[in-house]
Amino acid sequence: MRIIALIVMGLLAFGTVGGAVAYAADPPSAVPTAGAERAGKQVNIVKTTPHMDRRESRPSSDNPGTALLFWAFAAATIGGALFVITRRNLIAAVMGMVGSFLGISAVYMMLYAGFLSVVQMLVYAGAIMVLFVFVVMILNRPEDEPVAPSGRAGQALGGIAIVYLVGRLILLLINVRPPRAETAIAAPGPITLNVPGGAPEKVEWGSVKAVGTDLFGPGLFPFEAISILLLVAVVGAIAIARPLHASDEEGTS
């Protein structure tokens, strides 16, 4: 267990250093969120329009509070995930999972996906985790050996492979640029929605109305297919989990 924690901490450190090196070697001077431009723009905006809506006037990445919030929620997400894969106690793992989901939900909110953020909190942190807690309560057994046994060579190979993979991934992702200047990290603002049988109206990006119009328009067939899938899953779960004979249940519980 300690070895896993070491591996993951090592890959985090490697990723941070590698990302910093790549960033220093190739600073994104072309995008509007670059450092020098940012300082000037921020001062200008604050001086000329101090009364304006803050989210409209100022790109979110220029806000130091946004950066601090991002790091806090990223730490919650990663910390909870590490908790899941390192804890021997199953309830502790589930609680780490809930913390990770809360962090993910907050990150969704920072991506202006408000509806998805609420759905994430309701469905994952609410429903699925309650299901996990119930199953953990049913099979309440301490683990003797939580981690699969593997030799020292296997651990070293796996660690090297993970570090290499995450390093390459980060070197690739650090150069991702938004395709258009107007979708740089600034607040998306309202979008115009073509309502069928009505006048076009402006709604907030990522709101229930915007997502719902897309869901029940082009996404109507997948939506209906999902409902059939959920029905099949419910029937299948009951069919699998139910005892084969009535006497089994008395014997086991």
Binding site: V8, L11, L12, G15, G19, P28, V31, T33, A34, G35, R38, S61, T66, A67, F70, W71, A74, T77, I78, A81, L82, V84, I85, S100, I104, V107, L111, I162, L165, V166, L169, I170, L173, I174, N175, V176, R177, P178, A184, I185
Partner: peptide, 17 residues
Amino acid sequence: NVGYPHYLVLAAILFLI
């Protein structure tokens, strides 16, 4: 200066964990 690469790296690390 938090931008899209930060979010993408966060998702990648989560996937790796």
